[in-house]
């Protein structure tokens, strides 16, 4: 244990926390829907190419998967970030971490949506 800094440090706050909790809840809800939908759409499992393409024919599916992607990236980034925070990095390191998460997260989302659009377009 070290001494507290008299000045409160930025880097974690109520908004980040609420975002983490809400994105987590959305992931939880979408995942539940995903499991139920899958059970009805593809009771034998969703493996082979044609099954996947068929699955994506319904326009609601890419929307659902896209929502899942966006919020799971947000939730996991904030989660990883709080684990990194536990190692008490300097504010400078934290700025780099934040940049990596924002740029990387956006890249992953763009890639994922491109993939969704591409696969949906195959049908």
């Amino acid at each position: 244990m070290q001494d507290a800094t008299a000045v409160p440090k930025a880097g974690e706050n109520v908004w980040l926390w609420l975002t983490k909790i809400i994105s987590g809840l959305i992931v939880f809800v979408v995942l539940t829907i995903h499991l139920i939908v899958n059970h009805y759409v593809a009771p034998e499992g969703l493996f082979y190419y044609d099954d996947v393409i068929n699955y994506f024919k319904n326009p609601l599916i890419p929307i659902m998967e896209g929502t899942f992607l966006v919020f799971v990236v947000i939730h996991s980034s904030l989660g990883l970030r709080s684990i990194i925070l536990d190692r008490n990095p300097t504010q400078k390191v934290m700025r780099v971490v934040d940049t990596v998460f924002v740029v990387g997260g956006l890249a992953v989302i763009v890639y994922g949506i491109w993939l969704l659009v591409y696969v949906a377009g195959l049908g």
């Binding site: 082979y48 044609d50 993939l115 696969v119």
Partner: peptide
Amino acid sequence: HLYYLRQLTMGPQVWN
């Protein structure tokens, strides 16, 4: 998972 899904873009043979 996201990384391997990339193979969907490579056609049915690769994916299957």
